Simulated assay, not measured.
Amino acid sequence: MKKVKVLIVDDSAFMRKLIADFLSEDVRIQVVGSARNGEEGVKKIKELNPDVVTMDVEMPVLNGLEALKIIMKTMPVPVVMLSSTTKGGADNTFTAMEYGAVDFIAKPSGPISLDLHKIKTELTEKIVLASNANTKGLVKHSGIGKNSAEVQQRYSKIEPCRYVQPNANSRQLICIGTSTGGPRALQKVLSDLPGNLNAPILIVQHMPAGFTKSLASRLNGLSDLSVKEAEEGDILQNGTAYIAPGGFHLTVARSGKNLVIHLEDSPQRNGHRPSVDVLFESIGELKGIHKTAVIMTGMGADGKKGLMTMKRNGEVRAIAESKETSIVFGMPRAVIESGLADEVKNIERIAESILKFV
């Protein structure tokens, strides 16, 4: 079995040792080196050619964000950031995602986390996953999007579901599910949608508590839509995107003429809370509403069962992100291979497809 070669970049000798010890216990991983700052990390990447890099943000000489920019420009390699759960840490995390980081891990208790063992399993799993990430999708280049027709033709065997184009007065809902690589994908899709969109948007992004509020705030500033972290009792409004808060499932129910958000902390589904399946199953119970479901980059199959429920219960159009632009082609693949996707689109064409249906 070929092991995943990992380089650890952190200015704390204690953290470097702790991370290396944890990773070395996994038979799938080989720690090939470590670096004390971003500058040293860039040099070690050239020397050691790792499959994955773990990167701290706050470091002397060259910090993690600046190092990440250099790495993605000169020698793209999957990078997993180790982030603080403070607001500043969350903001840096999303900047790192924009620069090309595959994923992040929230440190349990600050820069020097003595209790790092709490995230040991998550760290090793994310590193193994990152080793298979689509690095081409991480780097912005002018070639992306030119093969959309080819992508759609390749999946033309998928039979579109029976769908009645809604009129301007029809009630409509858009629901989006995504995971690894999702923040960048959401930024692209939401920023391409108009502020006067004739539907509310419900979003599940797999992310821990403490980060979804910062994600919503960031996307709100980059989009003409209103974007917010969903709250218990929110009444759905057109032109507003609601992001499920980390640690809570998001569901929707009728209350008179309104559609109202409910949050629950019931057990995880598919290893996640929030779960895309929980949201989609909830939406599937709503009758008389035209629905557009979108599944984008992410590991696993969360969303597939929920989409099946939606399709059994009423009108829904499903869009899946293509393999070409997915950072991790897990969730979209599950939907496509199940025959549930009506359209398969590169990320920069998904907003266009949404608008075609609403």
Rank of each mutant, 00 (worst) to 15 (best):
I243L: 11
G284E: 02
S326E: 09
T325F: 01
G330W: 05
P274Y: 02
E231L: 14
D302G: 00
H272R: 05
P267K: 14
G239Y: 08
E232W: 07
V294W: 00
V316N: 03
I235Q: 14
V276Y: 00
H262S: 13
I283N: 00
L307W: 03
A301K: 12
L279R: 02
T309P: 06
V276F: 03
L340D: 09
I327D: 12
H249N: 14
P245E: 06
S266N: 13
R269G: 08
E315N: 14
D277H: 11
E264G: 09
Q237Y: 05
M310H: 10
A293R: 03
L259G: 03
Q237W: 09
G233K: 11
K291P: 04
R269T: 13
V276K: 01
T292P: 06
A253R: 11
L250Q: 13
G330V: 06
H290S: 15
L279P: 04
E315K: 15
H272V: 04
A253Q: 11
L263E: 05
A334E: 07
V278H: 00
I336T: 01
R273Y: 12
E324K: 08
R254L: 08
I319L: 13
A318M: 12
M310I: 10
H290N: 13
G303V: 02
I243W: 07
V294H: 00
L259Q: 00
F280I: 00
